[in-house]
């Protein structure tokens, strides 16, 4: 009896948080949804159609492309780095890399862009020292942005993958050898399948991070690389045809759908990984 009373009472402690979330998060999201399907006061799918055409579609594809590239490259490089750290005998190296990863994974936004501009921008230190400008080097394009995004993506991958690599028990490798498997066969039949959920989960996190990134791109490339976040910001700050303001909302909805689909893959994966690598 005491328990059920506690239950009904403690429910009220959850209410403020939920009410807050509904108002501050839910209302803007509903308005976004409503606005997407409204043009000049009347219900319409025109915004959505427009957001999937021409320059808008290009920017959406551009964002997906760079995010996918960053996710895959960051995933591979981060995994190698994590494996190098995990198999190392030096504890200090491991602790150092993990701490640095914690910091660098959070090093995004405007400061990151400026650090790279100072390094490899047109008058950056490395650019001028090595005379890269004469060879047609420019940081302000798709590949430059990829290079910069990797700066926070690789550490994020390291943070995600190290626990999974630690979870690979030495007994599995030995049991595989004991059953006649070569190193390659161990990785093919056991190592990689066991790590796959964690690796994919990490890759998806990287995708989400790069996909949502706005500050770095804005500070670095302005609008010279077509990205959906830049287009949304453009439209929100009034750089759009009269009457077409709600295209920004439609683009936002496109983004949410993409991010939501990707996350829908991630969550079940994470559950499976947690079960295997207890």
């Amino acid at each position: 009896m005491g328990d059920s009373r506690t239950g009904s009472k403690s429910r009220w402690a959850v209410v403020p948080l939920l009410v807050f979330a509904v108002i501050v998060f839910g209302v803007p999201m509903l308005v976004l949804l409503g606005g997407t399907f409204t043009r000049e006061g009347t219900p319409s799918a025109a915004n959505l159609t427009e957001s999937l055409q021409g320059a808008y579609l290009t920017s959406l594809i551009g964002s997906v492309k760079i995010s996918a590239l960053v996710a895959v490259l960051g995933g591979v490089l981060g995994t190698f780095l994590a494996q190098a750290v995990v198999t190392s005998r030096f504890r200090a190296l491991r602790e150092g890399v993990l701490t640095a990863s914690g910091v660098l994974a959070n090093f995004g936004g405007v400061p990151l862009a400026f650090a790279w501009i100072a390094t490899l921008g047109n008058s950056g230190v490395v650019t001028t020292t090595l005379g890269l400008g004469d060879h047609g080097w420019s940081l302000y394009n798709f590949w430059g942005l990829t290079l910069v995004y990797l700066y926070f993506s690789v550490p994020l991958m390291v943070l995600t993958v190290v626990p999974a690599l630690d979870g690979l028990r030495p007994q599995w490798r030995e049991a595989a050898q004991n059953n006649g498997a070569s190193t390659w066969q161990f990785w093919r039949y056991v190592g990689v399948p066991v790590l796959t959920p964690a690796l994919l989960g990490g890759v998806i996190l990287l995708f989400g991070g790069a996909f949502a990134a706005y500050a770095t791109a804005q500070a670095m490339v302005g609008s010279s690389v077509p990205l959906v976040t830049l287009k949304i910001a453009d439209a929100l700050t009034g750089n759009v045809l009269i009457g077409h303001e709600n295209v920004a909302l439609a683009l936002s909805l496109d983004m949410i759908v993409v991010a939501g689909l990707v996350m829908a893959v991630y969550l079940p994966l994470r559950r499976r990984s947690a079960r295997w690598l207890r």
């Binding site: 979330a21 999201m29 976004l32 706005y214 976040t229 936002s252 949410i256 996350m263």
Partner: peptide
């Protein structure tokens, strides 16, 4: 409730707020 803000990119959130 505590996962959604991670999934929804901040720029879409601000699009909603500014509207």
């Amino acid at each position: 409730v505590c996962t959604l803000p991670l999934v929804v990119p901040p720029i879409t959130f601000v699009a909603g707020i500014s509207t």
